[in-house]
Computed example of a mutant assay.
Amino acid sequence: MKKILTALAITLVLTGCKTSPTGRTQITLYSEQKMDEMGVASFAQMKEQQAIEADKAINSYVRCIADNLIAQLPTEYANQQWEVVVFEDDSANAFALPGGKIGVHTGLLEVAKNQHQLAAVMGHEVGHVIAQHANERVSQNSLLQFGLQASNVALQMGDIQYRDAIMQGLGVGAQFGVALPFSRSHESEADIIGLELMAKAGFEPQGSVELWQNMAAVSGERPPEFMSTHPAPQSRIANLKNGMISANELKQLAWQAGYKPQCK
């Protein structure tokens, strides 16, 4: 039984191996079509459950930033029909989903003070989509559940004492040793993808650093970074600063090509 489970797990991993835009090896077990369907369904549910901002000026401003970013995406994504919705929500948040969906909360407009800072957040969220992070997270969860179930079967077959305690320990180990660091790696990768994307669109890359400085100023106490799904603001700022020289070069090339957004 253990040999069969191991062989099945190896087959799943090998068939799902891909490379992210930054060169990181990733496992995506689900088709892009399936992920798009999930994203579209989730977005439709959100629109039913949350109030939508009706102010035309706000919607035009957010759409302007989105359009400039989308124009710089890889062709398969740039050619999608992207839907951009501003939700009435006080949280400083935004998100993007497979299937060409972008949501921005009105609370984010209080923290992202200009088009460059908002482009940093939106670029980051779109970065999650083009790096297929949602697929990776769903796949990771499936493999974790498979692994825990396989461990449970092995422990039952071996009649090992304290099986429940061991399984509980395995669950905690999976959470802090795999799931959370994996999510932080996604966030850091999306930061870099978003930084490059906003620069290619002609936005000021420095806006990404300013945005996270603003976020740090309004954030309350955070859990230790090793227990958080997101890197600490200071870590993100350092990561972004490391890519700033390259990003500014991309911005200059964008300006020379006539890409200089004026979203207001």
Rank of each mutant, 00 (worst) to 15 (best):
K200P: 06
Q161N: 12
W82G: 06
K260V: 13
I130W: 08
S139C: 00
I130H: 06
Y77M: 01
V84A: 06
L240Q: 07
K3C: 06
C263D: 06
Q234L: 13
S228A: 10
A120I: 03
V13S: 00
Y77G: 02
G103E: 11
I52L: 15
G99V: 06
F182S: 13
H116N: 15
L143E: 00
Q33V: 02
A165C: 07
V13Q: 01
G220R: 11
W82Y: 05
N141Q: 15
P98D: 10
E88Y: 08
A7V: 06
T106Q: 09
Q117W: 03
A71F: 03
Y77R: 02
A120M: 02
D67N: 11
G123L: 05
L143A: 02
T229I: 08
L211D: 00
V84G: 06
Q145G: 15
L240F: 08
E187C: 08
Q80G: 00
Q175L: 14
K3H: 12
K56I: 13
S91V: 12
H124G: 12
Q252Y: 03
E196V: 08
T19F: 01
E88Q: 15
G23S: 10
Q117L: 04
G258F: 07
N135Y: 05
A216P: 06
Q72C: 09
L155K: 12
R184Q: 09
T11G: 01
S219R: 11
I237V: 11
G16T: 00
M227T: 10
W255S: 08
V84W: 08
I193Y: 04
V104I: 11
L143D: 01
M157G: 02
Q50M: 15
K113G: 04
K260N: 14
A238D: 15
G158M: 14
F203G: 02
I70A: 05
M122T: 05
F226E: 12
G177M: 04
I65C: 11
L197A: 03
N59I: 08
N152Q: 14
N214H: 09
P224A: 13
T229D: 13
H105R: 10
S188C: 08
Q252L: 07
R184I: 04
P74K: 09
A54T: 14
Q140V: 03
P224K: 04
W255C: 03
N141K: 13
K113V: 07
M167E: 11
Q140K: 08
